[in-house]
Design a protein around this nucleic acid. Structure first.
Length: 495
RNA sequence: CGGGGUAUAGCGCAGUCCGGUUAGCGUACCUGCUUUGGGAGCAGGGGGUCGUAGGUUCGAAUCCUACUACCCCGACCA
């Protein structure tokens, strides 16, 4: 643990990378583009998983598991899908190694070539729909509402820990329905589940919307998404939910007999969020002292740091600290008593701040005399202002109230940041100026053509993040072409 | 795939131009003592095929050649 974190204002990107490593969340592995998620980082992911999983089950979904490998031919069954993923697929060509003749180690055994190569899944639509074909004959077999927690591989050119890694963890929901209406409703429902999770657990406000044709998922008819704004003014796609129409049903010949004894193609959806959410969580709230975690997702909600001179004081402080710990745990709060004798209090303060523990209680001889404890909340960056002395008798109530208030106030802070960084513009000049000077979401009219979208992207590096669902219908002119436009879309530079 | 760069202790780096005792610094690690209300101090200690393979030389981290890996910029990125 070394001192000091690069300040966000000096180099946001360096700040992020250092924070991820110093807070013990994850590190780069020996395999290019792949990360090792460390216990503390994984504990946060597990908290996220648990909540999302609960939400899926509450909306009628079940978990299942499909294979890591996909026969190469499956991928090409859906034309847009293969087009979108072909360039970033890892391919398994052989199934055996042998000792090298020169003794230099093992080499691929050329005699063990696979008849058909296997793709390491970049996403599982194809294996799953080839399975659904066997499972679905009648309208009585529908709907199928499944989710799987899995790892996927996308061989990205440039990777960034949590935000874009070659291998990542995610969940992918895959549902099959008898009607279009039902499938669309499912797609929208899952987008809303994601938005609910982002806002009420991660404390990250999001914009809900649909993707333009060029940003749409490969093989989807429509892609719904939630878009979040990071502290450096760049957008991050936090989750997507796709209405697949009958595209995969056609590709894999998945049909059912309706009540009227008519053969119909099945309608599909797929939706996912990944370990990228960890990146969103880190970048949305953290400060120059380290990570700031919303209480609902913090693996440790309260840390107690003892301050003492000599064994006698240590014993007395520990006795009181353990009482506080027990009382808080009885109230459903997760607590760590940091009784390491090998580090000094100042080190521990800095260390737990770096790790984003929401509330810290410091307990020393002085407190024992006064019947008090010093409480510090992590969401206040100024270290003095974050502290408050509370009576021991009130500690459980104070902590609970503070945790609740923090969850709220972190969200409000992120929300007002986003509002402040959301700008309506009406000219291309203004558009470019806002992007360069303050970034954020820029609301502007667009003529609806991929050509204009592409030109704007080339010239400004800004993309259309989404066509917001709550956009008011108002007539305007496209900032680029001047053609008529019915409503504003959200532009931003993005991760 | 194009352009640029790097490779020396767990991590971060100096030394390389101009070859020459035992390869050094910060941090981390280990031991001891003193410390403990904001990242402790002192003393001692362990840790290196100097990316790999050749070559030049009495002598190579340093010069030459080839290779490999990684990083940055570009292209690419549901």
């Amino acid at each position: 643990m070394s001192k000091g974190l690069t300040k966000r204002s000096d180099d946001y990107s360096a700040w992020y990378n250092e924070l991820v490593k110093k807070a013990d969340l994850a590190e780069n592995s020996d395999v290019r583009g792949c990360m090792v998620i460390k216990p503390y980082g994984f504990a946060i992911w597990e908290k996220m998983q648990a909540e999302i999983d609960r939400m899926f089950k509450a909306t009628g979904h079940s978990n299942a598991y499909f294979p890591l490998f996909i026969p190469k031919s499956y991928l090409s069954r859906e034309a847009d899908h293969v087009e979108g993923f072909a360039k970033e697929c890892a391919v398994v060509t052989h199934y055996r190694l042998k000792n090298a003749e020169d003794g230099s180690g093992v080499v691929v055994d050329p005699n063990a070539k696979l008849e058909e190569e296997l793709i390491v899944r970049p996403t599982s639509e194809t294996v799953i729909w080839s399975t659904y074909k066997r499972w679905i004959q009648s309208y009585r077999d529908l709907p199928i509402l499944l989710n799987q927690w899995a790892n996927v591989v996308r061989w990205e050119m440039r990777t960034r820990i949590f935000l874009r890694t070659a291998e990542f963890l995610w969940q992918e929901g895959h549902t099959a329905h008898a009607t279009k209406e039902e499938a669309v409703a499912e797609t929208v429902q899952m987008m809303n589940v994601y938005a609910d999770f982002a806002e009420n657990y991660m404390a990250v406000p999001v914009v809900k919307g649909t993707k333009t044709e060029s940003e749409r998922f490969a093989g989807a008819v429509d892609t719904y998404c939630i878009e979040a704004l990071m502290q450096d003014g760049k957008a991050l796609q936090a989750g997507t939910s796709h209405f697949l129409g009958q595209n995969f049903a056609k590709a894999f010949d998945v049909k059912y007999l309706s009540k009227e004894n008519k053969e119909e193609l099945v309608w599909g959806t797929s939706w996912g969020v990944s370990t990228r959410l960890m990146g969103a969580l880190i970048m949305a709230h953290s400060d120059d002292n380290g990570l700031v975690l919303p209480p609902k997702l913090a693996p440790i909600q309260v840390v107690i740091v003892p301050i003492y001179k000599g064994d006698e004081q240590f014993a007395a402080v520990s006795a009181e600290a353990n009482k506080i710990k027990a009382a808080l745990e009885a109230a459903g709060v997760s607590v760590k008593y940091d009784n390491r004798d090998t580090y000094k209090p100042g080190f521990k303060f800095a260390d737990w701040e770096l790790k984003g523990v929401p509330v810290r209680l410091a307990l020393g001889a002085r407190d024992l005399e006064n019947g008090t404890v010093e409480m510090a909340r992590r969401d206040v960056e100024d270290r003095k202002a974050a502290k408050k002395v509370v009576q021991l008798t009130d500690v459980v109530a104070e902590v609970q109230a503070t945790l609740e208030d923090m969850q709220n106030s972190i969200y409000q802070k992120a929300l007002s940041f986003r509002e402040q960084k959301t700008t309506k513009v009406d000219t291309y000049e203004e558009f470019k100026q806002v992007l360069d000077e303050q970034g954020g979401f820029v609301l502007a009219y667009w003529d609806g053509t991929p050509e204009t979208e592409e030109k704007i992207k080339e010239e400004t590096k800004a993309t259309i993040r989404c066509i917001p669902l709550d956009a008011e219908a108002e007539d305007g002119k496209c900032i680029y072409s001047g053609e008529p436009s019915k409503h504003r879309v959200v532009f931003a530079r993005a991760y």
